[in-house]
């Protein structure tokens, strides 16, 4: 499908004199804005040779921050994908008063600045917050722990998976469910064997989008992490190292993060083309 779309792309009339200027402009504009900054991460990361790079990546604090980022991002992704599937199915199946209002509320978190999201979480889960004050009675604390980072990630990426799964559900022919039902399937069996497999592509895309957004999250995590080594995610580590003027250490981890993002992004493109038909 993509191939035909590509073939049909308008390629301009032959010998169009504007053509080289058009293409040249796009590439030139991207140079200082996108291409050079990305390239320089790898340039500075490997500036003192691969051994230095490897040393920087291998530092225990660096490894810890990468592990923490991967772990919190994964947990947040699983939570939001599960929520996204359930919410999308509920909104698809039922029409109720205020359903469009609920749709807006679900989609709201992406529109909120990440620092604001961090503050908002602090207000609820912090010591004087609604849940935070209840937790005071236990030994458990949420803010300034790994849990806080997961909460921040969940908040910031809340509607991403939902936003991909809901349209896929809307495109699903309702007669599939009817057919399964007449064949004797319960609601749960219908959902499991018929609805869910049809959403496979959307679920994977939604998960990757969520993960990609989580792994780079900075604004909200810096608010809730409490500037502790235990809660230092990879982006926070980069920031800290820059502040300490350890540019090589910072750029090395930045390069690793960039590569992870590239991989996730290519996977998104791949699933879009292959799994979503």
């Amino acid at each position: 499908m993509n191939v035909t779309a590509h073939n049909r792309t308008y390629s301009g009339r032959p010998n169009d004199p504007v053509r080289p200027f058009g293409i040249g402009f796009v590439v030139l504009a991207m140079m200082p804005l996108v291409i050079l900054p990305l390239a320089s991460i790898f340039y500075y990361g490997f500036n003192k040779g691969p051994i230095h790079f490897w040393e920087a990546v291998k530092a225990p604090a660096a490894i810890y921050s990468l592990q923490l980022s991967l772990m919190t991002s994964s947990v947040a992704t699983v939570c939001n994908v599960v929520f996204g599937i359930i919410a999308a199915y509920v909104m698809y199946k039922y029409r109720f008063k205020g359903s469009s209002a609920l749709m807006i509320v679900i989609s709201l978190p992406t529109a909120i600045p990440t620092a604001v999201a961090g503050v908002a979480l602090l207000l609820v889960w912090g010591r004087s917050g609604l849940f935070g004050s209840l937790l005071e009675y236990t030994d458990y604390q949420v803010m300034f722990t790994t849990a806080a980072i997961i909460l921040a990630n969940i908040f910031v990426t809340f509607p991403l998976a939902f936003g991909v799964i809901k349209p896929a559900l809307d495109n699903l022919d309702p007669s599939f469910e009817s057919a399964a039902e007449t064949m004797g399937a319960t609601r749960w069996q219908t959902f499991l064997y018929v609805v869910l497999p049809s959403l496979r592509g959307a679920i994977i895309t939604g998960a990757l989008l969520t993960f990609a957004r989580c792994i780079g999250e900075f604004g909200s995590t810096i608010m809730v992490s409490g500037n502790k080594a235990k809660t230092m995610t990879a982006p926070l580590y980069i920031y800290a190292k820059f502040n300490e003027a350890e540019v090589e250490a910072a750029t090395a981890i930045a390069a690793v993060l960039a590569v992870i993002s590239f991989i996730v992004f290519s996977l998104i493109l791949f699933t879009r083309n292959r799994l979503e038909k």
Binding site: A179, M183, G184, A185, Y193, R200
Partner: peptide, 27 residues
């Protein structure tokens, strides 16, 4: 519907797109 034991052939057949022919029949 599932308790009635009636077979329905839908207008667009509603074959499950992620199942093979054999899996559809076995459903």
């Amino acid at each position: 519907a599932r308790e009635r034991n009636i077979g329905v052939i839908f207008q667009n057949y509603a074959l499950f797109p992620r199942m093979t022919v054999a899996d559809n029949i076995a459903f």
